[in-house]
Design a protein around this nucleic acid. Structure first.
Lengths: 178, 178
DNA sequence: TTGACAATACCGTCCAGACGGTACAGTAAG
DNA sequence: CTTACTGTACCGTCTGGACGGTATTGTCAA
């Protein structure tokens, strides 16, 4: 009942991300996504009645996944590790993945910049929470922004840093985070 | 000869940036740019024979402006100020501007991701140069990435930081830079 | 000085193609 | 009989860009 539906849904979402990454954010057409997902256009529009709904689902899934990862990393964190350190580690791992994991964001922005609002509010939430949990504001600011920089480089697929440099950066940040 | 009429070129470029910022990166149509610039579509296509050429000009002008600003900040820099400190200050000033100064980048990416290549190579150049001029690699990495994070926030128009926090961040970075 | 000619810097129109979305008939599974 | 699609045909809109025209400015020979 639901399995079949959910399967197709996920395939479509993954296909959309793939198409965005491979053919460029501007070429994310419904036809392209449908054929990539092995689904007819009718089927695609059955699952996501409009393109906007598809984008929204992309955003929501992404946010949910990150939130879950953060939550489980927090609970599974070694005793005494600060929340900021957990955040740094998790984000660095994400950014180290070879594929720019979220290049579909550009498609969403191109479609309608408002798709960013949930992401923005999520970020603000995370930041405010970290602020409440981190005694040293200066350390938080530096670390948070540096991680944001790492995320941005991954997003733009611009690998200015070598692997060693990235490692050194992360260890420096963890040191700053205390 | 060239100067008088050539201001039409600059008007078009500015108009393109405005349209991208105001109506969203996906809505950067030649018609919109032309009417915004107070120029007919024919006139627009006279100055920039294709949309790709327009985007390219946007990128090149942006890079040239930043490079010049960096160069003059370096020479005008107070004695004893490290190149990294100059870079931090200049970038922070840029990021503090209210308008996301380069949101047209999203339009360029949507049009064709290859428009990023000159930007990427420019960044790498700047980074390599800073690496040669900065003794403390750890400090460089942290500061460079944090600045990159600031740039990214400005680009995405996501103002997580308050003015005070941004100030504190910059002073912390300058402290780290030594 | 002037008249002819051209280069420059546009304007306004038109068009082929792509895209999002609709409609609808068919079908296989449960 | 319903759910979850497939497949196709189609429509309206938007967009890049080609094209032909035109006014202004510059050049230069007679």
């Amino acid at each position: 009942m639901k399995a079949r539906r959910a399967n197709s849904r996920d395939k479509i979402l993954a296909a959309a991300a793939d198409v965005a990454r491979e053919t460029g954010p501007g070429s994310l057409s419904l036809d392209a996504v449908a054929s990539r997902a092995g689904v007819s256009k009718g089927g695609l529009l059955y699952n996501f009645p409009t393109k906007a709904k598809l984008m929204q689902a992309l955003v929501e899934d992404y946010l949910r996944a990150f939130e879950q990862a953060l939550e489980s990393a927090r609970t599974a964190g070694v005793g005494g590790e600060s929340p900021l350190a957990t955040y740094i580690k998790l984000s660095a791992e994400h950014a180290a993945e070879s594929k720019p994991s979220a290049s579909w964001i550009f498609s969403a922005i191109a479609e309608d910049p408002d798709f960013l609002t949930p992401i923005k509010s999520f970020r603000r939430q995370v930041f405010e929470r970290l602020k409440g949990e981190t005694p040293d504001l200066k350390a938080l600011l530096v670390c948070y922004l540096a991680i944001e920089g790492l995320r941005s480089m991954n997003l733009f697929d611009s690998d200015v840093l070598s692997v060693d440099e990235r490692r050194l950066l992360v260890s420096s940040l963890l040191e700053i985070a205390g």
